[in-house]
Structure formats: C-alpha cells, structure tokens
Design a protein around this nucleic acid. Sequence first.
RNA 1: GUGGAUGUAGCUCAGUUGGUUAGAGCACCAGAUUGUGAUUCUGGGGGUCGUGGGUUCGAGCCCCAUCUUUCACCCCA
Length: 454
Amino acid sequence: MDKPTLPKGTRDFGPATMAKRQFILDNIRKVFQKYGFMPLETPAMENLTTLTGKYGEEGDQLLFKILNSGDYLKNADATKLETRNSKQLTFDISEKGLRYDLTVPFARYVVMNRNEVAFPFKRCQIQPVWRADRPQKGRYREFYQCDADVVGTDSLICEAEIILMIREVFKGLGITDYTIKINHRGILNGIAEAIGAAGNETPMFVAIDKLDKIGEEKVKEELREKNFSENALTKLFQLLNVKGSNTNKLAVLFKEFETIASGQKGLRDLRLVFDFLRDYGSDESNVELDVALARGLSYYTGCIFEVKINNVSIGSVSGGGRYDNLTKAFGDKENLSGVGFSFGVDRIYDAMEELNLFPKDAQVSSKVLICYFDDESFRYGLGVLSKLRQAGIASEIYPDLSKIKKQLDFANKKMIPFTIVIGSEEVSTGALAFKNMTNGEQQKLTIDQIIKQF
RNA sequence: GUGGAUGUAGCUCAGUUGGUUAGAGCACCAGAUUGUGAUUCUGGGGGUCGUGGGUUCGAGCCCCAUCUUUCACCCCA
C-alpha cells in the first residue's frame, strides 16, 4: 500500500490550525451579522449551465467538472471522441461542476426564490470554493470565501458599508497596515473613451491592472502590441498618474470626463460613497481611489474593490464590486442590481501568520486538566470534573492511570494552563492541589475556591 | 494551460569526483526521580533517500518518466 497523499492544492487543517482559522471566521461572521446579513448555504456542486459563461473564458477553464455517473460515454459525440476534442467533449460527459465562487450560486438562489425573499436581500455565505488553478503560495485549489452581498437596491450605502465592514473585521483581527483599493467600471470606461480606445476596453483593463506589479514601461509595451497609439498611451498615463488625495483625483478626472457619461456616473458614485462614510461618522482612512484597479471578473459593472495587506507576500485578501446584470444571466425578467465582496480566509491566515498576529491563547483547548495518582483519586476526580463543567469551565481528565510526569507533559503539550493534582491526601481532606502550568505555582484549594479563580 | 526550481528521520538540514552497515540538532519513548512538567544526565526507537524505470561491478549522488511543493507567466481569494 502506497503512502496516502492529498490532491494538489488541498490541505488538512489540524487542531492548532483550526483554532486560528476559527478565530478569523468567528470575527467575520460576527461583523456580517452585526450589519444585518442573513446566512445562506448552497451545494458544493452546481449545474455546469449555471456556472459557465459567468467568469469569462479564463474562468470557465478553471472550473472543476464532475464526470457524469454511470455510463458517461453514452452521450459522447463519436467524432469528438475520435478527434480527441476534449474541450467540446466535456459537456457531453459532464453536466455538473464545483462552485467557483459564492456570488454566482447566490444569484442563482435569488432567481429561484424570487417570491420568498424580501428585497433588498442581504445575505452572507461562508463556504469553500474550488478552482482548477495551478497552486502557488497563497493560492489553493480549495479555499474558503466569506461573502456578503446585497441584491435588489442601487443604493451606494451598500458600497460604503462594505468599506466599514472590512475595517471592522481587520480591526478585530489586529491587522492595521492595509489598503482598500476602490475604483469604478464607469471610470475605466470613461478613460477608454477619453483616450480614444472605446471598444478596446478589455485588453486595456487587463494591462493596467498589472501596473503596480510590472511598472509603467511593461504596461505600455503590452498595450503597443495591442495596437494602442502613442497618443492614447500618453493620455492614458496622464490619467493614471494623477496623485494626491481621493478628492483631488476625483476633481482632475471630473474635468476630463466633461462629455463622457459613463465616466461622470462613476465619479458621482464614488463621491457619494465617500459622502456616506462621512455622514456615518467615519472617513476615508485606508481607502485609496486607484484608477488602475480593474479586476478580471467580467460581471462587475459599478464600484470595484480590492484589499491588500501591506508588507506581506500574499495577493489580495478581499475583493468585490457591483454587478447589475447577474440575475438576468439566469433568465430573470426584471433585472436586479447587486453588490458584494468576499474575504479570502486562507490568505488572511497566511498573512497573519507572516505578521505574527495570532493571539497566543487562540490555541487553548481545555482550561483545566485533572491529574491523579491512583484509581481512588481518579474516581474522586470525576466528581471534581463534573463540578468544573457545571461551572462552565472547559476541562478534562487524563483517561489512563499513568505517571504524573506523563500527565503534566500532556497538559503542556495541549497548552492547558491549569492542572488539579489529586492523590489520597486530597481525597481525604478535599483540599486540591491547583497548579498554574505557566509559572509552576501550586496552592491547596477546595473545588469551590478553584471555580472562583475563573 | 506554458516555462524554471525542489524533494534525505515527525521538523530543520549535512551527506566529498558515484564506493561497504546514510548522519547531526531538535522532537519522540524509557530510566535516573515509588506525590509533581517545560532544566540536567543516561539509554532507546525511527529513513525501501518522493515514486517508478534506466545506466553501472556498485546510485542518496548520473539519465528518463511521474507526483508534491515552490517561482514566473496567465488569472485570482
């Protein structure tokens, strides 16, 4: 029998890792609920027709497909088989796939339950997603997303609340040095129009999105290959290089977009988001208008977000935006506007590990371990255990009669901070040896006195 | 999906131009210590060198394939 292994890009999470992951997840869940988002879960697999066509051509290639059950070659086209046309053959032998994100399944749910849900509908969803990507650091084939979306309203208060939630989650996790990048598809379209590249937006978005990574010259090179004129490039970088505060950037762009409707709309939206933040009693801290931010997911139409933790070797840990046409893609007659974002738990974990931000006691399991010398004190210990648990103190007793050294070692290994050592003396007097495992101090206390220590 | 790097004990790594029974530190187990752990001392277990082929009298080391992890591209949480 060969040694067992895990599939590429997947991981086990042991108790120590789980404690830290729970810490992140609990924090996010708490904030989502505080902002009025109701939980939703959807199946791991969706029909392929639900998933394909929503993420662009690249995204479709990254979908995990599930082979049909039974005689799956029954419906396979003979010529496709003979010519080994895998791409075409896929849809003959597979009709289900694993979800690629949580937004598309959510849109599907909304369309299917249109009459039951009360709009505007706020839902949060914390579940794994799967991508057939090639794994790297901070990039897995199975990972958790934590989504919060609102559907059925155009109000930009939703965008403002997304910023508030991101800041609250990061505060709870102890992450202070981060940037919430914000942009608007309208601004991007406006720029394309302003430089005379309307109709050629996609290659422009793809290229400028990489600006902070590969630099101005490389982006220009890439765009020249896509037949952008020198005039267009000069104009483009004039707009991308506007520095200063968000207000300043908005003002400069406002002049450029005098006759461009989509650009105007983008600027108005962003200005309103910033206004709402101020009215709420907040400000623009950690928020940066980045006109080069484009994002690949093709369904975004309005504001777009991306969050980076600074000084770590991890890509973005959160992203999202507004999508106006997603329910229409599922045959919905009346179109519903939605906006949402997603935290990547796995990347937040990696970043926090790199920055050493996990609190030490995030790993503690039980608070007390009961140790004993003989069978009689074990029996007595069970009564003590029961009292501790009734008092709500997480505790356990060592299950086997063995040397006290081994029992205390076990407490150390599990990072249990206190032990109660019981022997014949303790059984007869009721004064228990209560030991602090961090500093080694020990005192004789009754069980009631011990409970009061917590 | 394209190209590059990597893999030796539970962990971090040594291992000479291919040459006998593959090493260290930490960790683990047992004893010194029959009512007290993270210090010290003594002893012990553990590796078909990622996997499968090949070259050779002989392979941890050379060649090929494959898998894992990782880096760049693509894309993205």
